[in-house]
Each structure stands twice: as structure tokens, then as C-alpha cells.
Amino acid sequence: MRTRTVPTRTAAAVAVLAACAAVLGGGGPSGAAPAAPAAVPQAAPLAVQQAQDQSDSCDLYASVPPSSADGPAVKAIKAKRSLVIGVDQNSYRWGARNPNTGQIEGFDIDLARAIGTAIMGDPDKVVLKPVATADRVDAVKLGRVDLIVRTMTISCQRMQDVAFSKPYFSITQRVLVPKTSPAKNLDEAITGRNVCVAKGSTAADVFDPTKEGAKKDTGAHLTVVENQLDCLVLMQLGKVDATMTDAGLAAGQAAQDQTVRIVDGDLKPEVIGVAMLKSSPDLTARVNQVLADYHSSGDWGRSYDRWLKPYMVNDAEHYWPVPH
């Protein structure tokens, strides 16, 4: 397998195309209604018990019990009068900047604002800071953000570096190709093809032979970028044959760009959580309490219906993680 890393300036060089893609995705709750999406090929049912990879020895659902108490980490954040949350600004319907308003919006953004407001008691004290896919762990460990709410898959390896909340979304890996591609399924889309993945993503691990459960002997040539939207731009330019990313982001890209489609098949059932420092268990407990309240109040489901349901096909509770 040959791997090629594409620096961030690649995306900058094709900023016009990226901007066009953003305009395509500018509709939604604060813009014009988007066109009805094409039917998304169905992946295998999300059997929740599969979210725990059999090759892993950790419990992906393990986290501290929910609590509304303010411990030292939460008090320190309140003392500095701002909670900085790392988010995406390039993933349509999850976290993307609306070209009509200039505001970042989406499913993860709703959650980030709910967490921030619940902890700080004031939405004006919540700072949303765009963070690249490849920089998520370092942003937490180096103190550039207090939390990451950015479609971040929980894995045993990542749990060694950062703490995670209880999972808040179940997902799998899917593959996007241009509509002109002859590929009918995931294997055909990646075997011997130039496949784009984001650096530090679960999709990148799928092709890493050093990782347990990696998909080997595909003959794929890997192009690695900083942000998953860069893959869409490269696919628009004909520089790559396919993009692998999680099902939610894939659905968003297919809705954003009507020239691409999702092929049948999926890989690696997994769960998404909020990341933060391992040395701040009280902050993790507060986030877990907010997640529990956010779901039980129905706000999680309403946000799903607003942003994701037209593109994810299934009802909200299909994606709420429940430990086996």
C-alpha cells in the first residue's frame, strides 16, 4: 500500500471548489431547504453490541458516572470565564459554517452549545474553536481546548491519550465515490484504488496494517489529508477515486455534493464521544450528566431530526448507543 500525505495547502489551492461545495450545503434550518437527497444505500444494521471491536480489550462505554457537581476542573474553567470547545467547521450537517450567516451549525454544534451552556450557565461564555481532524487529541492534551465535540470515534488507543464521555452516537465507516464510478460496493470502491482519508481518523486506521482489524491486501493507494472535506474536493478534481469516512459525514457529503454517492457496505461499527483531559474526571462527569439530560429531554432526538434524519434514513434512536 502506498500512502501519500496531502498538506493543508492543497485544500487552500482549491478553495473556490470548496466554497462551491459549501454553498451547495448552505440550505437547512437557517437557509433554503435542500433538495431531497438520493436514497443512501443501506449498511448492515447497527448491532450495538458490535460497537465494541472484538479485537480491542477495552470497554468503549467506560466513563465516569454522571454528576452535576462542580469539581476542580470545572471550577477552573468557570474562573477563566470561558469554556473552549473544539468543533468542526467543514462537515455539512454536523459542524459547518453556513455561508448565509457565517455561523457554525449542525448536530455536533447543537450538542456543544448545550454542554457549554449547561456548564457555564451562559451561552456567551462558550467559545467554539475549529479544530482539524488530525489535531483533535493534541488540541486537548496541549490545552488549546477544554473539550472536543467533533464526530470523534472512541477507540482503545485514543482512550490512552484522552478521556471520553459516554458515547452519544453509533456509527460505521462508509465509502463515497463519484456517481460515474463503476464500483457497486465497498470492496470494489477501494481495491486497487486511490482512497482518501483524513489523518488521525478511524478511516485511516482501516488501512493501517499495524492496527488490529485493518483491511489488508486491498492494493489501495492512500491519500491522507488534514480534514475530511479535503477528500471531497480532491474527488471533485479527479485526484482520488474514493473517500472513506464515517457514515454520518459520508451522508452529509453525499447531500452536499450531488455528484457523489455512497456505495453498499460498511466497516467497523463504532461509537462517538466527547473528548477531554484524563486529569479532569469531574469535567467528564459533568459532560456525562449533560448528555444524559440532553437525550432524556428529547433535545438530542430533535437535533437529529433537524440536521441528520433526511440523510441518515433511520430514526434517531437507531443511533443512540446502548451498551450490551
Rank of each mutant, 00 (worst) to 15 (best):
V16D: 12
P72C: 02
I115D: 00
A242C: 09
P65Y: 08
Q253T: 06
D230V: 05
E270P: 00
T245M: 12
G106Y: 03
C58H: 08
V48L: 14
L176K: 13
D315G: 13
A275T: 02
A36E: 11
N288C: 09
D187H: 11
V177L: 06
V287F: 05
A255T: 01
S68Q: 13
L283V: 05
K309R: 15
S67V: 02
W94Y: 14
L46T: 03
Q253I: 04
R113W: 01
E105F: 00
T101F: 07
L111W: 03
V6E: 12
A51G: 14
P209F: 02
T223A: 13
L128S: 09
D138H: 09
T3Y: 04
V40N: 08
D282M: 05
N98G: 07
V84Q: 12
Q52W: 01
K216C: 10
A220F: 03
T202V: 07
A32S: 14
G31T: 03
G213K: 00
A183S: 13
G26F: 05
I190G: 04
V263Q: 09
V23R: 12
I115T: 04
V322P: 01
V126A: 11
I190A: 04
D138P: 00
R261C: 02
Y168Q: 10
P65Q: 11
M312V: 00
I190K: 00
D110T: 03
S155Q: 08
I115A: 08
E270T: 06
V127M: 11
D266I: 03
K78N: 06
P45G: 02
G71K: 04
A47M: 10
S155V: 04
L234A: 10
P209D: 08
V87W: 03
L308E: 09
D264Q: 15
L60T: 06
M235Y: 02
K268Q: 13
D264F: 05
W307F: 07
S279Y: 04
S181I: 00
I154Y: 05
T172M: 05
A79P: 02
S91R: 13
A189H: 09
D293H: 05
A183T: 04
V23N: 04
P310F: 01
A43Q: 09
P34F: 05
K216T: 13
A33M: 10
G27S: 09
A132D: 15
V225W: 05
V322M: 07
K125M: 12
L249C: 10
T180P: 06
G248Y: 02
D122N: 15
G121W: 01
I148F: 06
Q103K: 15
Y61V: 02
L249V: 11
A44K: 15
K278Q: 14
I104N: 09
G213A: 04
A11N: 15
Q54C: 10
D299W: 01
S30F: 12
I77S: 06
E226W: 04
T245G: 12
G116F: 01
P34W: 08
G265T: 11
D110P: 00
D264A: 15
G273M: 01
A79N: 10
W320Y: 14
R158H: 07
A19I: 07
S279W: 05
V290P: 03
P178R: 15
A285Y: 00
P65K: 12
D122Y: 06
D70H: 07
L283W: 02
L111I: 08
V127N: 13
V14C: 12
F207V: 03
R93A: 14
